[in-house]
Design a protein around this nucleic acid. Structure first.
Length: 298
DNA sequence: GCCCAGGGGTAGT
DNA sequence: ACTACCCATGGG
């Protein structure tokens, strides 16, 4: 085990960042967050402006551990500029939308969009379709545990790294059904059949946000919402604006906008450019922490 | 038994 | 372009 302590000189909230719905494979146990990032098992805890990290590997994301952690948690994102910019955009809207949004910003203080693996995002958000968060976590874990060679034993505790494209290519539709992917089984099977190698996900980096969405949406099971989540959480496309049932509800309340997710997504991207993704994630957390009760004032 | 979950495909206008 | 309906499974 490798251990580091990182003094934070920027706003950051570990709990909010890992519990706002952008990631499915982190878990908190007696004060420590446990997670698997690529092939590394991490234990992380925050005390004020100190981040304590224990790691199964001395490198992370091709960097030394400290820089890998900084990169994964996007400590380079300028949250002050981002929230100031979003607050400026809110001036075009009414008092109600503005005050609710500013509340959401306050409650999500220190939230950072993670730099996660694009392939993992594709699979997890394809699984997320018409599913519940506990179930998405469970299926995602079971999918990883399907491969014994992915097992890592750390302090008598078992962890499984997320499957690679090559590994998932080896699964039949029936395998996927037995892992409870249900109607998503054929989608995932077809995807892993059509995408030849991981190069696909590397090449996607060079494309614009619109091109990324268009390319991803050529595959069955990937629509506007899933593609946007991949862009935002896997490629750092901070203007992607995923619209799920919760965001749809709160956008309807705040901006009186109804209709297709595409329409709401485009409204969000245009109105809150270039940081619509941060706005979306803070709204998502805001409404989820209220369990969907959004008859806030009047 | 009912309804809902970080939606998307398809068929019909 | 928009709508209605279906999709498997788990939990309340």
């Amino acid at each position: 085990m490798y251990e580091i302590e990182l003094k934070l000189n920027v706003p950051f909230n570990l709990d909010i960042t890992l519990d706002c719905g952008q990631t499915f494979r982190w878990e908190k146990n007696n004060g420590y967050w446990k997670g698997i990032v690529r092939n590394t098992v991490l234990f992380v805890t925050q005390n004020g402006n100190t981040l304590k990290v224990r790691s199964s590997s001395k490198t992370l994301l091709g960097r030394n551990l400290i820089n890998g952690i900084k990169h994964y948690f996007s400590l380079d994102h300028d949250l002050v500029t981002i929230t100031n910019h979003l607050s400026g955009k809110l001036k075009f809207f009414n008092e109600y939308s503005r005050s609710v949004s500013l509340d959401a910003f306050k409650e999500s203080s220190g939230l950072r969009i993670l730099r996660q693996d694009p392939f993992e995002m594709v699979i997890q958000y394809m699984i997320s379709t018409r599913n519940s968060i506990p179930n998405i976590k469970r299926i995602s874990d079971n999918l990883s545990a399907f491969f014994p060679e992915n097992r890592l034993m750390i302090n008598d505790e078992t962890f499984y790294t997320f499957p690679t494209l090559k590994q998932l290519k080896g699964l039949s539709i029936n395998d996927l059904r037995s892992l409870k992917l249900a109607f998503r089984s054929t989608w995932l099977h077809e995807l892993t059949e059509k995408i030849e190698s991981e190069d696909f996900f590397i090449k996607l980096k060079e494309l614009s946000l619109k091109e990324k969405l268009d390319t991803l949406m050529q595959y069955k099971g990937i629509g506007f919402k899933v593609a946007s989540c991949v862009a935002l959480f896997g490629y750092g496309e901070l203007n992607a604006f995923p619209v799920d049932i919760w965001v749809k509800r709160i956008m309807e309340k705040l901006y009186n906008i109804t209709g297709s997710t595409k329409k709401i997504m485009e409204f969000g991207m245009q109105s809150f450019s270039p940081y619509a993704g941060y706005y979306q994630e803070m709204l998502f957390r805001y409404i989820r922490t209220r369990k969907g009760i959004i008859n806030i004032c009047k």
